[in-house]
Amino acid sequence: MIKLENVGFRYEDMVMNFNLQVAKGELVGIIGPSGAGKSTLLSLLAGFDDPVSGRISIGGADMEGVAPDQRPVSMIFQDHNGFAHLDVWTNVALGVSPDLKLDPQQHERVDGALARVGLSDFRTRKPTELSGGEKQRIAIARALVRDKPVLLLDEPFTALGPALRRAMLDLIREIQTERKLTVLMITHQPEDAKYAASRIAFVQNGRITHVLPTKQFFAASAPAEISAYLRG
């Protein structure tokens, strides 16, 4: 589903090069030390940064020159996932159409998405009135409404408590299964990746140095750098 071939990028004095293949329906965790380039990796996929070399393809199509809104991708950020001045319903509805002219069918889709993430009661509230977890759910609802096959998550649940994180990961996994989404998730909590991901990519110094099935990643026999990162 997702293919990165020799994708090069330069950020300040770090030269990055990514190679990765992700199959459809997979949930891949992305782990690595700070500043390794994890966010840049997702950014390249989403189209917010342009690679200087290499090829990115999603769903078999070459993403070169394709604008962010044209890519079959939805992205959830760590923060600022919504427009603080608009209410929850409008925030989600923008995922359908930015001119906010929705036909009854689209209306229902928005309502449905809100219900799915449990935010129906909050539709008229503003994001500033919501808790961290609720705020991120707005983004999830919007991703639902957009219905793109790829979902990119950039540490969206970092600020939440363990139980809440679990609940959010469950929600993600449910939606993933329902819609056969391909998900890439950056996380700083390895237990989250352990819980939700089937494979994990280890990013270090601008490169994906290892891609391992979850079990192997957390095993004692994992490569030295990974063990060093996990256990210090």
Binding site: F48, A67, N81, F83, L94, G95, P98, R146
Partner: peptide, 13 residues
């Protein structure tokens, strides 16, 4: 915030 513009790009504002 930058995310607002990224969102805008993604939502084709």
């Amino acid at each position: 915030p930058a995310e607002n513009f990224r969102l805008a790009a993604q939502l084709n504002f």
